[in-house]
Design a protein around this nucleic acid. Sequence first.
DNA 1: ATCACTTATCGTTGAATTACGATAAAAACT
DNA 2: AGTTTTTATCGTAATTCAACGATAAGTGAT
Lengths: 102, 102
Amino acid sequence: MMESDLTALDAARMCKALGHPARIGILRQLLREERCICGRIVEVLPLAQSTVSQHLKVLKDAGLISGEVEGPRTCYCADRQRLAALAAALSAMLSPCREEQR
Amino acid sequence: MMESDLTALDAARMCKALGHPARIGILRQLLREERCICGRIVEVLPLAQSTVSQHLKVLKDAGLISGEVEGPRTCYCADRQRLAALAAALSAMLSPCREEQR
DNA sequence: ATCACTTATCGTTGAATTACGATAAAAACT
DNA sequence: AGTTTTTATCGTAATTCAACGATAAGTGAT
């Protein structure tokens, strides 16, 4: 047992965070390059730095990415485990015989 | 090959639709009872009929449920295939060796 | 034809989201 | 100390969302 089940609320929070093309793009980029500084993402996306920073915050608050300060910059990483948990939770919704989830 | 790949935009649209606890609840209910009339969902959720109807529309526009009129009522069904496609798309994001998606 | 029932839509309100530029804050360099 | 670099935060405007009650529109029964 992995104890990574999500509550419906947690799943909703994550989905909400993923519910914007820019944030999907950021997550993609983070998965592609493993580690990314904010500025790198700003390079890739057609958005202002402040906007990207806000999107990063949303993703972080949802637990989909982590960011650690490294000197003057902040290095972001995708949380693959959490993303996997979300995918699993959606799949689990489909299986007919599942125990009640909170 | 199943040709059910999602564009990032489509995935974002679906996630956005799932990004509200009420809509997760509606989808759950629909998966539990297979077919549900709008009124049935109104019974289960603590929301006004008009609000539920709106949420149903959002889910339908995202392609996560379908609804067909049956006389005076409308019968809704979860689109398991689409939900599975979303779960698969999220999982696919995690696998390192994947072809470019649009 | 009228009535009851069911659901979608309209109109409205308040709250949240999205985007941006400007600014602040922290670290590294000269 | 001052400058540069990098990022988070603030303030703001425009848009969208969420919720509700009221209403309309459709069907079926009396």
